[in-house]
Design a binder for these strands. Sequence first.
DNA 1: AATGAATGAGCCTTCATTCAT
DNA 2: GATGAATGAAGGCTCATTCAT
Lengths: 200, 200, 200, 200
Amino acid sequence: MMMEMELSETKQRILSGALTCFIEHGVEATRIADIRRASGISVGSIYHHFGNKDAIVVALFLSGMRGHSEMQEQALADASSAEEGVKTIVRCYIDWITDNPDWARFVFRYRSLVENSGLAEQNEAHKRSHFRRLKEWFSPYVNEGYIRKLPIEVYHSLIIGPSQDFALRWLRGETRSALSDYREIYAEAAWLSVKCTEKR
Amino acid sequence: MMMEMELSETKQRILSGALTCFIEHGVEATRIADIRRASGISVGSIYHHFGNKDAIVVALFLSGMRGHSEMQEQALADASSAEEGVKTIVRCYIDWITDNPDWARFVFRYRSLVENSGLAEQNEAHKRSHFRRLKEWFSPYVNEGYIRKLPIEVYHSLIIGPSQDFALRWLRGETRSALSDYREIYAEAAWLSVKCTEKR
Amino acid sequence: MMMEMELSETKQRILSGALTCFIEHGVEATRIADIRRASGISVGSIYHHFGNKDAIVVALFLSGMRGHSEMQEQALADASSAEEGVKTIVRCYIDWITDNPDWARFVFRYRSLVENSGLAEQNEAHKRSHFRRLKEWFSPYVNEGYIRKLPIEVYHSLIIGPSQDFALRWLRGETRSALSDYREIYAEAAWLSVKCTEKR
Amino acid sequence: MMMEMELSETKQRILSGALTCFIEHGVEATRIADIRRASGISVGSIYHHFGNKDAIVVALFLSGMRGHSEMQEQALADASSAEEGVKTIVRCYIDWITDNPDWARFVFRYRSLVENSGLAEQNEAHKRSHFRRLKEWFSPYVNEGYIRKLPIEVYHSLIIGPSQDFALRWLRGETRSALSDYREIYAEAAWLSVKCTEKR
DNA sequence: AATGAATGAGCCTTCATTCAT
DNA sequence: GATGAATGAAGGCTCATTCAT
């Protein structure tokens, strides 16, 4: 199901060191020398494996995106009602961010950098197929009247928007409570936003 | 109420040229020479007026934030019910982004840069007083049972989160529809998320 | 007659320092830091004025080529017979190399580098007009039978070839005698190679 | 007579790939990785066989020089008059360049690099003995008055200079005609330059 | 206030060479 | 003999900032 993507020990170390640096100082402010120090891999080797700094950013981004969507699809497989499905999306999102805050920070911050770089065709393909699978999961519930009929582009924002906003502030250290404290509040709110109120 | 802040013709031109560059290539990738070209103001003059590159970023950010909160407070003054208030917040947010897409892009992208730079005390003060006024406006409605009692940190995400998510995607050019098309959907959804369902 | 080409003091110094370095170590082995040292101009300024290393090479080359062809055209203006004309070309060539050995070394060695770089359109134009003027000078003597009728491409090699070969070896320090010692031998030999033996 | 110099298949391939690269991009701009690609031999193997990049250049140069002087000496063995000898030198030179244009380009361009590198003692010895044999061949004709008595250093330039000049331009692609088209013109011109006009 | 030439520290990247397998 | 991952010194070039005019 997943593209075979065994990363060598060396590549793994480089990515891990790079993520630490990118989160701490930002991609632009991170020097290759910083990654060298953080990873213990020589400058020459870093270039041998990735070619340039941008390619490291892209590799990291892909890895983060895949992690999240795999987790989400697995969780969704166990849900058996519209309500469960919607709430699963939210819980899963919150759980992933809680468990992988650095990946999350990185993905939020550099999404546009990567997506505009023209280096991320794999990512595009991945996004499209993930979106298609989500659509297939939810379509029946919309057609049968459990979920409000809304423009397709709107569901993502209604379901994920609130927790995403809170997550961003939590990741920035601007909230008093933990993101996970409001897991059920956001799951519930998401369901309220999209459930069908006319038909019972 | 607002600090007197008449910007000279030259400063205006510099900021305007800088915003264009920052949006197009990002703050880090924008050179002083680029701003010189975009604004028509000489390098020496840019330094004469702003001192360094960071100060331009901060000035631009403050200007954007002020624009939005002023607009929001004015609109809120005319609202006369919990529902109107909540919907006004959303409509105002959508309208401001629709009318100032470049400012919006800039603010979203560089919020953390500015807020971590330690150069934006003015901004902190401004944010605090704005938040206080919002709290005063809504408190009565919460106490009287029109709005659900929720942790204070959660309201922002429930009300703004969905439209913010859509706005971000719209600003990136990833949506088919315009942000303004869903103005009422998001206003309504925000109200659904926070209105009190038990009473009344 | 000459393109206005006042080089600033700074540019002059950079070119002069660069020539010294290029002759001593070769263009590739010359570091910008070497030119900085030799010229006393800062690295930043070197780039401010020339943009990159190649542009320095090209500027130097143009300057050398112009020096030689100007000298040659002036000398030719005083010649008043086919024999004098041919001998003038050779003497002038030998004199110029004798007086400007560094320029000569540079021009011989980096001609192809410059001409293949695509950066030397000015040089192309200059070469063409110089060649046209030479052709106009000699044509009458060919038509009137003082000079052998030969394929046009051949004259250059017959007239300049021998002294050029010796000059190259002299510049490399491989000859016992000075180039100028054989000035008249090469002038005479050139005339022997192209004078018409049939007529007279 | 010739040093035994059977090159292994692998060495041959490396040299051949290297020559292609050196001609196309120049020695300095050619990377070991380029030679690897052009030859199909691994980086490690290239070092195993040659030790470093300079040694490849020198090996290539020696090989080119030897090819030419061997050919010349063989041809000269069949000549039986001063005129035939001089013309043979020129024809042989033109033929060799026509048949080995890449070797010729390489030898012209990197002669000084190799000869100044201190790595080419073999080459020095070879050049000296070749020059001695030429001298022995021509001396009698000079003494007997068939060839002008000139400073010894001058003969090379008078005989080879013209065709060399044309050859250089032909190799650079700057001529309309082929070098071989003027084979007899240059052979004849060389003889005109050195034959004794007084006697006979 | 305005200008733009001058400065030089600093960074990304390259590439010859080594060496373990 | 063959391979290619690993190394790190070195260099071209950039760019924020200064300053004389």
